[in-house]
Amino acid sequence: MTDTVGFLYPGHSAEDEYPRLEALLGRAGAAVRLPLVHTGIGEDAHRVDALLEMGSAHRLAAGARELRALGAQAVVWACTSAGFVFGWEGAHEQVRALSSAAGLPASSTSFAFARAVRALGAGRAAVAATYPEGVAEHFRAFLKEAGAEVVSVRGAGIVTAAEVGTRGRQEVLALARAGDHPAADAVLPPDTALHTAAWIPDLEEALGKPVLTAYQVTAWEGLRLLDRTAVCPALGRLFRGG
Rank of each mutant, 00 (worst) to 15 (best):
G42K: 07
R154I: 00
V5H: 12
A97R: 15
L194T: 10
A162E: 11
W220T: 07
A106D: 00
G63N: 11
P201R: 06
G123H: 12
L25A: 04
P210K: 05
E66H: 10
G242H: 08
R240A: 01
I200L: 14
D44R: 09
H92I: 01
E171P: 03
A62E: 03
G236T: 14
V37N: 09
A31L: 14
L194S: 06
R47L: 11
F142I: 05
L238R: 00
E137M: 14
A74S: 14
R237V: 13
V231A: 02
D180W: 09
R177E: 15
R33G: 14
A125R: 08
S107V: 08
T218D: 00
D202W: 03
D202C: 02
G179F: 01
W199I: 13
P233Y: 13
Y18L: 14
L60M: 15
H46Y: 13
H195A: 08
T4V: 15
A69Y: 10
S107T: 00
W220P: 06
A178N: 08
V217S: 13
R228D: 15
R59A: 03
E149M: 12
E15P: 06
D16G: 15
S13V: 06
P10F: 05
L60D: 02
W199S: 01
M54R: 02
A214F: 11
F84S: 07
G90I: 14
A198I: 06
R237M: 11
L175Y: 11
A174F: 04
V164N: 10
A112M: 09
A91M: 11
G55Y: 01
I41K: 02
A197H: 09
A119G: 06
E43W: 11
L24C: 08
A156Q: 00
D191K: 04
G42W: 08
A116T: 09
E221I: 05
Q73F: 09
W77A: 10
A23W: 06
R169I: 00
D49Y: 08
R167F: 13
S152V: 15
